[in-house]
Amino acid sequence: MEEIQNYILAVCSILIAVVAVYSAFRLFRDFSLKSPRVRAMRTSFVIILVSTGIWTMHLLGNLSLQGYGQAEGNPLFPLMIYGLTIIIVLFLFYRLRILQVERDQLKELAYKDALTGLLNKNGMDHFWDHCKENEQLAVLFLDLNRFKAINDNLGHHVGDLLLQAVGGKLSQFSSKGKRHIFRVGGDEFVIIAKHYSQKEAEQLALRVLEKTTTQYQLEQHNLFVSASIGITMSHGKVERSRLLKEADTAMYSAKQLGTGRYSVYKTPTSGSYARWFDNFKSR
């Protein structure tokens, strides 16, 4: 009877180990994409869960040892089960962490642009899918001026170097949970800023233009490149297609006005206006 009881205790201990490790793994899913508050809460839950699991397994092990002690049997078997359970816990946790790291790496490759290191279209789709419906957003659509001419005249290699240089400058404006930078194709980039007013979005556009409108030393080529930016606001309702279309329209309005300018999208009834960054107009 004591042996059956100890077998049951051993099986329960192993089941607790499996449940604890699997639950911890579930809590760590998409961990890096969560807000700091959610990450802190999930980490606390995992610590409590694992601690409770280990403590419960410890109690079951003690019960098993006590049962053998009362029966004056050999305690070697429960000791082996107890140690084996701990080893299983550590092994499962180690293997699941490896799987999670590999999955995060694959997800990073799927969401990041290989050339610039910025988020790509997949990353932007993921952002929209996890965006609150009433989120206050500022969307900035950036396009490089004369990029096609540079690509055609100097070759795609130089064009790629320019995109890498611009991507490096834009990455400085990335702020986790606040500003997200995407390369959506060719020389087109999208910046999405959370909880921004229109004034703050315009100030951000000026800083981006100041950083990206400059001389680029690309191998033996010294090129002056400027950018144009279109801005639109979510106005309390997030509609990805509308916001991207409005920002793109505003960007073309800025491009028609010259180099190094930004334009804010307005409804057709209120018109639109543009401002510009002209530190380099004399060049």
Rank of each mutant, 00 (worst) to 15 (best):
M1P: 01
E2V: 11
I4N: 03
N6F: 00
Y7Q: 05
Y7I: 08
I8L: 14
A10R: 04
V11T: 09
I14W: 07
I16L: 13
V18P: 02
Y22L: 12
S23R: 12
R26T: 04
D30Q: 12
F31Y: 14
A40F: 08
R42M: 06
R42N: 13
R42W: 07
V50D: 09
T56S: 15
M57K: 07
H58V: 09
L59V: 06
L60T: 04
G61C: 08
S64Q: 08
L65Q: 12
L65M: 14
Q66A: 08
G69R: 05
A71F: 01
P78E: 10
P78D: 10
L79G: 15
I81P: 00
I81F: 08
G83R: 04
L84W: 07
I86S: 07
F91A: 13
Y94T: 10
R95C: 05
R97K: 10
E102K: 13
R103C: 00
E108Y: 13
E108V: 01
A114C: 04
T116R: 08
N122W: 01
N122V: 00
M124N: 03
D125S: 11
D125G: 04
D125T: 07
H126K: 11
C131D: 03
K132L: 12
Q136I: 01
Q136C: 05
K148M: 05
I150D: 01
N151D: 11
N151W: 01
D152S: 02
H157P: 00
G159D: 05
L161M: 15
A165K: 13
G168Y: 00
Q172P: 01
S175I: 03
H180I: 02
I181K: 10
R183F: 11
V184M: 12
D187Y: 02
F189C: 08
V190K: 11
V190Y: 05
I191K: 00
A193L: 06
K194R: 14
H195C: 06
Q198G: 11
L206W: 00
V208G: 00
E210C: 01
K211N: 10
T213E: 13
Y216Q: 04
E219P: 03
S226L: 05
T232L: 06
T232A: 06
T232K: 14
H235C: 12
H235M: 13
V238K: 10
R242Q: 14
A247F: 07
M251N: 05
K255G: 05
K255Q: 04
Q256G: 07
G260V: 00
R261N: 14
R261V: 01
Y262Q: 03
S263T: 07
S263H: 11
Y265T: 02
P268A: 15
S270H: 15
R275S: 09
D278M: 03
R283V: 13
